[in-house]
Amino acid sequence: MSANTVVDPPKKRFYRQRAHTNPIADHCFDYPVKPDEMDWTKLYPDYDSNGDKKVELLDVGCGYGGLLVTLASVFPDKLSLGMEIRVKVCDYVQDRIKSLRSEFPDEYNRIACIRSNAMKYLPNYFSKGQLSKIFFLFPDPHFKKTKHKWRIISKSLLADYAFLLRVGGIAYFATDVEQLYTWMDNHFKEHPLFTQLTADEISSDPIFAKLFDCSEEGKKVTRAGGKKFVAAFKRIEDPFLG
């Protein structure tokens, strides 16, 4: 394929897959033993392995890539990564990025998508304090009480997110399920390393308002006339240190 060849956008109907996946099941994944062993040059065309620029923005369960595309325009100087557990959905996002890169050279070289399980392998990809933003948009609510342990926000997982987020970094979440919103909101409020953004901080945040409709799930809720619940929490200094 020549440098000027435009790749057709992927058609979503060919990438359909069940919306729900058991995140605790033993899926087959390739993942680095530690962050230093991850070869990011395979994902980002202009990645400098000898430079100091690393992935900063992480979309957990990126779905069909709507947020990733938005991040490319809002934060064009930062590297963004989508992590998706479903095979066909991840394939779609990767093909979507290829198409965008062919049509708009240099505009989408800093977004990428990999298939992995964020509940298990985040520390294999990212080092302490590496991330500045992490997103959880419309995650699976896992309504049954016996499956609450599958939810992407929990006490144990918040410890991982706090480890990977730098001080001042922000975790965002959105859902159309009020019960799940309350669950996530309470977990963040109870964690000593997170504090909710103030109204002034939200109003000056360039990405917060876009979280309502940038994803496919968000757009679906809008079409159905449903409610959306969005919040953001900042990583703070450990109050028990010093």
Rank of each mutant, 00 (worst) to 15 (best):
H27I: 07
S102M: 05
L197Q: 00
G242I: 07
D30S: 12
S204R: 14
I134D: 01
C113D: 05
R86V: 13
A232S: 11
H27D: 12
S127C: 11
D77Y: 02
T182C: 00
Q17R: 09
V60Y: 02
D185E: 11
I24V: 07
I85K: 04
F29W: 05
K78T: 14
C28T: 12
R235N: 05
K34R: 12
H148P: 02
M38H: 08
L193F: 05
I24H: 10
I207E: 08
Y108T: 12
V167S: 08
M83G: 14
Q17T: 15
P123Y: 00
F136S: 11
F194L: 10
Y31I: 06
L137H: 00
K78P: 00
S204K: 15
D36G: 13
T175D: 01
Y181K: 12
P76H: 01
A224P: 04
K189D: 13
Y161K: 11
K145R: 12
N4E: 10
V221W: 09
D8V: 06
G82T: 02
R223M: 11
R115Y: 03
F143S: 07
L158C: 11
T182Y: 02
Y108D: 05
L57M: 03
W150K: 14
L71N: 06
A171N: 03
K155A: 12
F188R: 04
F194S: 06
H148D: 06
K220E: 03
M38Q: 14
R18H: 12
R96V: 03
A231S: 15
D39H: 04
R96F: 07
F136G: 09
A72W: 01
I236G: 01
L158K: 10
A174N: 09
Y15S: 10
C28H: 14
V87D: 09
P123H: 03
Q196A: 15
R13N: 13
K149F: 00
G225P: 04
P192D: 01
R166L: 00
Y44S: 09
C28K: 15
N4K: 12
D48T: 07
A118S: 10
S156P: 01
K210P: 01
S80C: 13
W40N: 01
S99L: 08
L180W: 06
A231G: 04
D52K: 14
V221N: 05
A199Q: 12
Y31H: 15
D52Y: 09
A159E: 15
P23Y: 06
F208W: 11
P105S: 09
D238S: 02
E56H: 00
L122P: 03
D36N: 10
R101S: 04
G66F: 02
F75K: 11
K78G: 03
P35H: 02
K155W: 00
V7N: 05
K98N: 12
F135Y: 15
S102C: 01
P23Q: 02
D39C: 06
V74M: 03
Y44N: 09
Q17I: 14
A199H: 04
S80T: 09
R18W: 07
C214S: 07
H142I: 11
A19K: 07
S127L: 05
T182K: 13
V55G: 08
V167L: 04
Y47T: 10
Y181G: 06
D140K: 08
V74T: 15
R110P: 00
V69D: 02
I153L: 15
C90N: 13
K210N: 10
V221C: 08
A174C: 14
D8C: 04
G65S: 10
A159S: 06
D140I: 07
